[in-house]
Amino acid sequence: MSILKIREIQKEDNQQVAKVVRKVLLEMGVPKVGTAYEDEALDNMFATYQKPRMAYFVVEEKGKILGGAGIAPLIGLEENICELQKMYFLPEARGKGLGAKMMDACLKFGKSQGFKQCYIETLPYMQDARKLYARSGFRSLEKPLGETGHYNCTMWMIKDI
């Protein structure tokens, strides 16, 4: 039985995290433009999440990063709304309750930073993720919020925290 550990990202995790996110996005058939795939931050996640009111958590097993998720102010609505960002898991990490645990860690952090709501963007075919979000209390929105630049993400959800 191996031990899975959720912890904050470290500088030496950058390469593994970028690889995990891009691999999952390709697996899901996500467009490479207008999504997290082309975000500049992806190659330096540690530095990106060192700013105020931001955190990125990873799931590690025996030194291998299996997934991660971040929380940050929603650009354009920074004061009260945070955004759940780049939550992706390799196939071997799925179905173990890690998504719920990771989201809980992110939401607790967001609440501790004074945010009142959490926003997420997703895609229609990411059905397992959308089910998790709905089970966790997220509700659908009619249009996007903020200025994420992810114009290919066509589903938006929000939750009070």
Score class of each variant (00 low, 15 high):
93 A>G: 12
9 I>Q: 07
86 K>A: 03
32 K>I: 11
62 K>I: 05
137 G>N: 13
33 V>N: 10
18 A>M: 08
8 E>S: 14
150 H>G: 00
152 N>P: 01
52 P>A: 09
160 D>T: 15
100 A>L: 11
133 Y>R: 06
56 Y>Q: 07
54 M>Q: 14
101 K>F: 01
94 R>D: 09
129 A>E: 07
24 V>T: 06
40 E>A: 13
133 Y>T: 08
21 V>E: 06
21 V>I: 13
34 G>W: 00
60 E>V: 13
73 P>A: 07
100 A>V: 12
10 Q>T: 09
86 K>H: 00
136 S>F: 13
41 A>H: 04
46 F>Y: 15
53 R>F: 10
161 I>S: 14
57 F>K: 04
21 V>R: 01
157 M>S: 14
147 E>G: 00
55 A>C: 12
47 A>C: 13
110 G>M: 12
82 C>P: 06
95 G>R: 10
10 Q>D: 11
128 D>L: 11
57 F>E: 07
56 Y>K: 06
50 Q>T: 15
124 P>M: 04
86 K>Q: 02
6 I>N: 06
6 I>F: 04
86 K>I: 03
76 G>T: 04
134 A>P: 05
137 G>V: 09
68 G>F: 00
115 F>D: 13
139 R>G: 08
81 I>Q: 06
144 P>R: 00
87 M>L: 10
14 N>F: 02
155 M>I: 13
144 P>G: 04
75 I>K: 10
117 Q>A: 15
109 F>D: 08
150 H>R: 03
32 K>Q: 12
46 F>W: 15
92 E>Q: 13
38 E>L: 02
147 E>W: 00
77 L>D: 08
92 E>W: 02
15 Q>D: 12
130 R>I: 12
125 Y>Q: 12
70 G>S: 05
62 K>Q: 15
6 I>K: 06
142 E>S: 11
154 T>I: 04
6 I>H: 02
154 T>W: 00
122 T>R: 06
88 Y>S: 07
131 K>D: 12
138 F>R: 02
132 L>K: 03
13 D>M: 05
125 Y>T: 10
38 E>W: 00
74 L>T: 04
83 E>H: 00
110 G>Q: 12
61 E>F: 02
9 I>F: 05
139 R>N: 10
50 Q>N: 14
40 E>T: 06
46 F>N: 13
52 P>M: 07
27 E>R: 09
67 G>V: 05
37 Y>N: 00
133 Y>S: 08
51 K>Y: 05
117 Q>K: 15
98 L>D: 05
15 Q>Y: 01
58 V>C: 11
6 I>G: 05
71 I>Y: 03
117 Q>L: 12
127 Q>K: 13
121 E>H: 01
99 G>W: 03
157 M>H: 07
85 Q>L: 09
36 A>H: 01
4 L>W: 08
55 A>F: 02
53 R>K: 15
70 G>I: 04
95 G>D: 11
79 E>Y: 04
12 E>L: 10
19 K>I: 01
32 K>D: 03
66 L>E: 11
105 A>N: 10
62 K>E: 15
153 C>P: 01
83 E>L: 04
104 D>G: 14
100 A>G: 11
142 E>T: 05
111 K>M: 15
11 K>N: 14
55 A>P: 05
119 Y>N: 09
154 T>E: 10
